[in-house]
Design a protein around this nucleic acid. Structure first.
Lengths: 235, 235
DNA sequence: AGAAATTTGTTCGTATGTATA
DNA sequence: TTATACATACGAACAAATTTC
């Protein structure tokens, strides 16, 4: 039977010390992106643990996107969470067997919320850019072009919301879609070619953002996802 | 200058082999929660890497919630992602310096989407439970009780949506709030005591779910977050 | 340009505490 | 209780990449 009274001898795992050390340093503002961490040996000595333990902690930090190692140089603060976040969500989503329906619904949720905010907060430059991508989308010749501008258009909508939670989640979501359901998105954009309905949806979506017209924007979004749902059901 | 042509000599880092080994095993259905992994030495031999590298990989898997080590016994598949996910989102959110406004707005977004779905998909039992928590919330005597039932009520709304993306994200979000903005939530529930407005909002919210009345439910949510916004601005 | 020093990447050996039969 | 397997943790050693002088 293990000793239950560990409240006093609270023995944190060694590698956790490394994580706390870096995280607290960043939180306190002492460590900024690009800064170099002390050498592994130095950290080991400072925290009173072995280099192996230090490395376990640094691997976790690396995996979380907090730091990035460079052989021969050192470990640096990176704070690029997009990729780790995407990977983690991908794993979770695939493990839980989440389907396209849920995913599409969630994406719709994020975009709709973004529309509410974008009509108020979209900058002039964002309005210009989203219009440019709409034009390029409608006149695109290849699938690749169409896909590119479609993605950019939706991304600007999200960014115009100026809400980092929305932005972070949406970016991860689109990455998941790209990685795990490439067939899905391709068929959507292929269908776009012959669908005036989807083109109209995009026009309304952009018009909503540009003219700060919430109703039109929401209607465009509604038609957009209506189309996706119908398309999926035809599969 | 490092050699850029690594497309052929794609030398995966050793610890990545461990991650892939476990992840693929789970994906293929060969490894299920509760299953025991081979010993560290065995994995090391099988993958042709050292034990230290195996441990680095296992630490990452542990940190992701995929596995859980048990000293003296072995590593087991756990697949409990909630805590790691929460921790990761917490770190990201705090690192990016996201504020309460964005957080509240995002939470509103998730709950509203849940309402759309809940009016269709809420089970009878969920309707009963959410009504029970409403009653307990209105008649609560202590802060702790109020907070408890308030959280449960909102959680049922989310669960009733039956969308795992919503559920996962909302759970992480509430944990972030609990961990990093405890003062905020406490003041909200304290204010609840003297606010008929917030009580009405909850009544409408629950009525919407129970009676499949989307308009009432959305109105309740709207008032709920309207109150939170006003309260925050008074701070 | 080149050599030396520094740092991460990786492996191996060893000692210790824990769980299980 | 004993024996075995296991995770935990440390330290030494060499390879590979980078920086510095």
């Amino acid at each position: 039977m293990p000793d239950l009274d560990k409240s006093q001898v609270k023995k944190d795992k060694p590698y956790q010390l490394v994580i706390d050390y870096v995280r607290d340093g960043v939180m306190r503002g002492e460590l900024k992106p690009g800064d170099r961490l002390p050498g592994e040996r130095e950290i080991a000595e400072k925290l009173g643990i072995s280099r192996s333990s230090v490395r376990e902690g640094l691997r976790i930090l690396e995996n979380m996107g907090m730091t990035a190692p460079q052989q021969g140089a050192g470990h640096y603060i990176s704070l690029n969470f997009d990729e780790p976040m995407t990977e983690m969500l991908s794993i979770i989503y695939t493990m839980k067997g989440m389907g396209r329906d849920d995913l599409t619904q969630f994406r719709y949720c994020l975009e709709r919320e973004a529309m509410y905010l974008a009509v108020d907060y979209a900058s002039e430059q964002q309005k210009i850019r989203i219009q440019r991508h709409l034009g390029a989308l409608l006149g695109a010749g290849t699938e690749e072009e169409r896909y590119e501008h479609d993605m950019a258009l939706h991304m600007i909508l999200i960014e115009a919301s100026r809400n980092d939670y929305l932005i972070t989640n949406y970016r991860a979501l689109t990455n998941v879609i790209e990685d795990y359901i490439p067939v899905f998105r391709r068929k959507i954009t292929e269908g776009m070619r012959s669908s005036d309905k989807l083109e109209d949806a995009h026009r309304m979506l952009v018009a909503g953002v540009v003219n700060s017209d919430l109703e039109t924007g929401l209607e465009g979004l509604s038609r957009h996802f209506e189309y996706i749902r119908q398309f999926r059901n035809r599969q």
